[in-house]
Simulated scan of single mutants.
Amino acid sequence: MEITLEQVKSIFEDVLNKRITREEADRWAYSVISASETNSLTIVPNEKRDQVWSGVMYLYGIDLMVNPGEYLHTEEDIIIAMNKKL
């Protein structure tokens, strides 16, 4: 599996624009983490590794809820994280 910083940004934007659900974003991030654990992940370019990984780790758990129907991370939190991490 190969991922780029642009792909991670796209997932953030897709969540914010309701093109994918938070649950789908979480599952995508999980697939990236799984690929990393099996040494089948390539981050392009490698010098963006820390930014990409920071974004993936935020997305993994983006679907956590504090109450039924209430997400832990608000849309504002997601925007802030996207701008800070990426």
Rank of each mutant, 00 (worst) to 15 (best):
T4R: 04
L5H: 03
L5E: 01
L5N: 02
L5Y: 01
E6M: 08
Q7I: 02
Q7E: 15
S10H: 03
I11V: 14
E13K: 07
E13F: 01
D14T: 01
V15A: 01
V15R: 01
V15W: 00
V15H: 01
V15Y: 00
V15N: 02
L16R: 02
N17M: 04
K18Q: 04
K18P: 05
K18A: 02
R19P: 11
R22W: 07
R22T: 05
E23G: 11
E23T: 10
E23F: 05
E23W: 03
E24Y: 09
E24S: 11
E24C: 06
E24F: 05
E24N: 10
A25P: 15
A25L: 10
A25D: 08
A25M: 09
D26G: 07
D26S: 09
D26K: 06
R27V: 06
W28M: 03
A29D: 12
A29M: 10
Y30F: 12
Y30G: 13
Y30D: 15
S31C: 13
S31V: 12
S31I: 14
S31R: 13
V32Y: 12
V32D: 11
I33G: 11
S34L: 15
S34E: 15
A35P: 15
A35D: 15
S36P: 14
S36R: 15
S36C: 14
E37Y: 14
E37I: 11
E37H: 14
E37L: 15
T38I: 11
T38A: 15
T38L: 14
T38G: 15
N39R: 11
N39C: 13
N39F: 13
N39S: 14
S40P: 12
S40H: 12
L41N: 09
L41Y: 06
T42S: 10
T42E: 13
T42R: 09
T42K: 11
T42Y: 06
I43L: 02
I43R: 00
V44L: 05
P45A: 02
P45T: 02
P45F: 00
P45I: 00
P45R: 00
N46T: 00
K48I: 01
R49S: 12
R49Q: 09
D50L: 04
Q51F: 07
V52A: 05
V52Y: 05
W53S: 05
W53E: 07
S54H: 09
G55H: 02
G55I: 01
V56W: 03
V56S: 04
V56A: 06
V56G: 08
M57N: 15
M57K: 13
M57A: 13
Y58R: 06
L59T: 08
L59I: 04
L59N: 05
L59F: 08
G61L: 00
